[in-house]
Every structure is written in structure tokens, then in C-alpha cells.
């Protein structure tokens, strides 16, 4: 699989949430239809707010079953304190590759020191943190900048790139904090152009936020991007892969990696069960 033809959706949800949800099977069917090679999963709303472990296990299961199509981000609510840190570490060791936080659902400002233990754990585990942004009062791009400046060794994804009201903040945010990448769900092609013109092409990442957004329409917008083929390839796969440390895409290498980590995962699940 060549990067130039690869399409990765950096952000979507699975599981039966209260407001929305989808099964991994339904997502896979839609991905096949739309030519999406891989999607990064997070568990849906209620799992983000409260049932963290249940949600993480759901994502782990999907990733283990369809390793060629899914990567997964863990979620934990920072209000659980050290319990959240422990669950985050467990999920990463079991096979997930990032942390998904939602300050609106979980109830804090992005720059609240409440989050610091999780950021420190993410740095230790060498994985990025995805924050949903664009919602006043407590999910604003400049709050993410403050957190990113406090932790320059951390890596952060600005979910939805501040959509809708904070488009004007975003170039300043990325200029000030070099450790922030922007995920593009909901944004119009003109917003992509604005960021490309501002020189941030290497830090933009395609993502859908499906099923909250419309996966087909998120893909449709790609056709309207005013970008070179090489730059499109960056945004559709290359930038995310580099952010994730060139995680292998090819089936053979992925399979051998996953066979090994599958055993680790199984052991971790066993351990978790015995802990309960």
C-alpha cells in the first residue's frame, strides 16, 4: 500500500452511545464503499464520559479482530485521577495507540491541571492525545495551546480544528505550539486552503468524526481541496502516520506485529479479568 493512495480516517466512534453509535461492521462496510483503508476508533459518548473501561475494551476488541483496518485510541475521564491513568496505561499496553479526551463531555477546561497526569502518562507511553475542540467555554484551541506549551514534549491533535467559531484562532494556535496537529472533520475546503496557505500542510490530518458527522460527505470534500497530490497524500495518511511514528500499514508487517501484540493483549485482558 502506497501512502499516495492511502486514506486513513483519523477519528470516528464505535459502540452504542446514548446519542449516537455504530458497529464496527457497519463502519467497515462504509469504509469499503468509500475507499477508506483504515480508521482510528474511539468509543462513543457514554464511554468517554463514564464507562471508560467498557469503551476501551470495545475498541480493543475491534482492533484485534480487524487489525488491517482499525487502530484505536483509548479514553479515560481525568476526574477519575490515578484510576484514569492506570486504565489509560492498561489500554495502551493492550494495543491502543493514543488517548481521546473530550473536555465538554468530561467536564473541565482543556488547560486544567486536572489533565496533567494523563499528559505525563501519554508522554511516557509515547502516544498522542486527541482533544475535541471548537466548543465554548471549555474546548477552545487556545486552551489546547496552553496545554501544549506546558508540555512541549507531548503531541496533541486539535479535533475538528476548532470548528465552527474558532477558525480564526487556529493558525495562531499552530504557529505558537509546534506540537499540535489539526484534524479536519466538519471544516470546509476553504478552511483547509487557509491552513495550507498559512504553511501548515504537514500538520493537517483527515478525520470524519463519524457517525456524528457524515462519513461520505467528509470524503466528498476531499475532492474540493485546493492542494497538490502530494499534499493531499500527506493529509489523508502521511501526516498521521508520521505523528504515530510511521506505524506500518502493510498487511504482512502489520499482521506479524499484531500477532505478537495480540498475545500481549490477551494476557492483559486475562489480568484485567482477574483484577475485577
Amino acid at each position: 500500500m502506497q501512502d499516495g493512495n492511502t486514506l486513513i480516517d483519523a477519528h470516528c466512534y464505535i459502540g452504542a452511545g446514548f446519542h449516537y453509535g455504530q458497529t464496527p461492521e457497519a463502519l467497515l462496510a462504509q469504509m469499503a464503499q468509500l475507499g477508506i483503508d483504515r480508521a482510528v476508533l474511539a468509543p462513543a459518548d457514554r464511554y468517554i464520559a463514564v464507562d471508560n473501561r467498557e469503551g476501551n475494551d470495545l475498541v480493543l476488541k475491534a482492533v484485534a479482530r480487524w487489525p488491517d483496518h482499525f487502530w484505536g485510541f483509548a479514553t479515560v475521564n481525568p476526574w477519575y485521577g490515578q484510576r484514569a491513568v492506570q486504565e489509560f496505561k492498561r489500554a495502551i499496553r493492550a494495543g491502543l495507540i493514543g488517548l481521546n479526551l473530550d473536555s465538554v463531555l468530561q467536564g473541565y477546561l482543556i488547560c486544567d491541571p486536572l489533565v496533567h497526569p494523563l499528559v505525563e502518562a501519554a508522554i511516557e507511553l509515547d502516544v498522542p492525545i486527541y482533544f475535541s475542540t471548537g466548543t465554548p467555554i471549555n474546548a477552545q484551541p487556545m486552551q489546547l495551546v496552553e496545554l501544549a506549551l506546558a508540555y512541549p514534549e507531548g503531541r496533541f491533535i486539535m479535533g475538528h480544528m476548532g470548528h465552527a467559531d474558532f477558525w480564526i484562532d487556529v493558525p495562531y494556535a499552530l504557529a505558537q505550539a509546534p506540537n499540535i496537529w489539526a484534524e479536519l472533520s466538519y471544516n470546509l475546503p476553504s478552511a483547509v486552503k487557509r491552513m495550507l496557505d498559512a504553511g501548515f500542510g504537514e500538520r493537517l490530518i483527515f478525520g470524519s468524526d463519524a457517525p456524528k458527522s457524515n462519513l461520505a460527505l467528509e470524503v466528498m470534500k476531499i475532492g474540493y481541496w485546493d492542494a497538490t497530490a502530494a499534499r493531499k497524500a500527506d493529509i489523508l495518511a502521511g501526516n498521521l502516520r508520521r505523528l504515530l511514528g510511521q506505524r506500518p500499514l502493510s498487511k504482512t508487517s502489520a499482521l506479524s506485529d499484531l500477532r505478537e501484540s495480540g498475545e500481549t493483549r490477551a494476557a492483559a485482558f486475562d489480568q484485567d479479568r482477574s483484577e475485577r
Binding site: 465554548p136 487556545m142 486552551q143 505558537q176
Partner: peptide, 15 residues
């Protein structure tokens, strides 16, 4: 008062 009077938005002008 977001969206255009956030303290950190304004602080970026000071930066």
C-alpha cells in the same frame, strides 16, 4: 466570554 473574548485568545495578542 467565548467565542471572541476568551482570556487565552486575548493573551495571544500579548504574546
Amino acid at each position: 466570554t467565548p467565542p471572541y473574548s476568551g482570556s487565552l485568545q486575548i493573551a495571544n495578542l500579548a504574546y
